[in-house]
Structures are given as C-alpha cells and as structure tokens.
Design a protein around this nucleic acid. Structure first.
Lengths: 149, 149
DNA sequence: AACTAAAATTAGGAACACCTAATTTTATTT
DNA sequence: AAATAAAATTAGGTGTTCCTAATTTTAGTT
C-alpha cells in the first residue's frame, strides 16, 4: 500500500499550525488573540495568515468564529510538535539552559530530517542508560567553555 | 577585557557570506556567477544582495569588480562555516546519508546556539572514543526505522 | 436592551528575498 | 582591433510575512 506523502508548509505556516494545535489541545479552542500573543505577532497578521491557511486547506475557518485544523493541517501540526518534543528532550540531557533550548528548538524543528531525528532519539535512549557517559560529556562541555571564557 | 558581541545577519545573508568566504578560500576570489551557481539563485539576485551586504558594511563591493569580506562580514562567515563543519562532522557519525546531512546542516546552522554546538562537539569526541556505544546507537536507529517502514 | 470592552477583521503599506528580461561592462577569441 | 561570449547590472515585478490604524463584530456588564 502506498503511503501518503507528508504535506509540507513554510516555516511561518508550521509555527501557526503548531500553535493552533497546542491551544486546541490545552483549552479546547484556538482564538486569534491567543495565537497572536503566543507567537508575538499582531492580531491582524494572525487573521491574515489563518485566511491563507484556510485557502490552502490546512484549517477550516469561519469569520469571527474559531479555527479548527483540517486533516492535513493536523498532520503538519503533529509532525512539528513531535519534532519539537524530541529536540527539547534531547537538548535537556546536556544541561543547556531552558531559554536557549527553546530558541534552538524553534529554529531547528523546521529544518531537521526524520533520519537525524532518529539519531537523536536513539542517542537519547542510549545516554539515559549510560549516565557515566553523559557525565563525561557534560564535563567535556564545561572544560571547553572554560577554555574560551 | 570585554569581548566583541558577534554580529548577526538574516539567514539569507549568512548563506551569501558563507558562500563568498568559501569561494575566496578556494579560488582566491568570489564572482557573482559562482555565488549564484552554488546557491542556486539568479545572478541578478546575487548582485542585488551583494549591494545590500555592502550597504550593511559586511562586504566591500565595487561595480563589476570582485567582492571582499569586511571584518564583520568575515566574522559572520567564519562563525557559520564553523557551525557548518561541526554539524556535518557530528551527523556523519550516525550514518545519515550525505544529501540529508547537507540539507539538515543548511537548515540548522543558522539557528543553533553555541551551547548546543558545544554539546555536539563534546558528544562527538566522546563517541569517537566509544565505538561500541556508537554501534549500539546505530542499531537502535535501524530498529526504529524498521519498525515504521 | 443599551453600553462598553474585547476580539476579530479590513485596508493599506513595508521589508525581504527572490524572479525574468533587457542592457551594459568585461573578457576572450579570431 | 573587432566581434563574440560571458559576466554583471539595472529595471520592473512577485510572493511571503509582517505592521499600524480604522472598522466591525461579538461578549460581557449594568
């Protein structure tokens, strides 16, 4: 049986879909004002983007009413959320501070392949079973960063 | 002594600077036509961007003559090249195929923090000393990808 | 039900990074 | 040196994603 090709979207679209998905999961609905707030973007821009996402078949949208994800919109949102969580968990292993993790993940989640993600997942599992090794890696990081200041 | 804050540039600007740097290293000079070729972009677009880079003080440019990097342009180019190489070497450990590595690196290099980069470097050093562990990770990856098809 | 505050939308515009087509400059060949 | 080929530039556009200001709709209050 042929597998459905995964739908794609620009970085900005992915951010919106991820955010809409997150809000629906958390509160049961997604309002323009909250999407705007969370993405740090003007409400008008959000309305505009949601209209384009609707035109592209990624959300169902009715003026002044809420937004829901279509099937392909949901696919993209889930994929990006999955990447987000995988990357966050992985970076957390190394004691990188939370804000930096957040920024890195936000940047990386739109660009990383499934293969590389698999490498990170495997690495994470293995490192969780080898705390001694993780300790050595962390020391190495400290040594390195001290060397530069 | 206070360290100079690293200059920043948009993703596209970073790509141009990296490419210009690479060409200068390799051939001694950077022509518009080669930058265009390597980035897969029209020559006219390259001319246009180089003019903006010049206006921003990142390159020195004279019409119909070559381009050279200014000090801040060179700083950015070096930083991005360093990220590029670090990420490439790191991903190569896991047997991800070359084209995928190239794409991932191209995406990630513009977004990753120095802390996370340090983690990758430390991880790489340690994994090179622990081939058994690297083997386990690779098996884990294979098992995972088989599980999905 | 009328009023007000909050949310959403429309209208108009800007910056960025790309494009093609046409022109100009530079380099190469005869 | 003239002709031709290659490279670089200009001119005019396009799509994406953002903005502010003004307006409309919805929700909450008295």
């Amino acid at each position: 049986m042929p597998t459905t090709p995964p739908p794609t979207a620009s970085r900005a679209r992915e951010d919106y879909l991820e955010q809409i998905h997150k809000l629906i999961e958390e509160k049961g609905y997604a309002r323009v004002v909250d999407v705007a707030q969370n993405l740090g973007i003007a409400q008008a821009s959000v309305t505009n983007m949601i209209q384009r996402l609707d035109a592209d078949g990624l959300v169902d949208y009715e003026k002044y009413r809420g937004v829901v994800l279509t099937e392909s919109g949901l696919d993209i949102a889930k994929a990006i959320t999955d990447r987000h969580e995988t990357l966050t968990r992985f970076l957390e292993l190394f004691g990188v501070d939370d804000e930096t993790i957040y920024d890195d993940v936000e940047g990386m989640e739109h660009h990383i392949s499934e293969s590389t993600l698999e490498a990170f997942r495997a690495l994470q599992e293995e490192l969780e079973r080898q705390p001694a090794m993780l300790g050595r890696i962390r020391s190495r990081m400290k040594a390195r960063s001290k060397k530069r200041g």
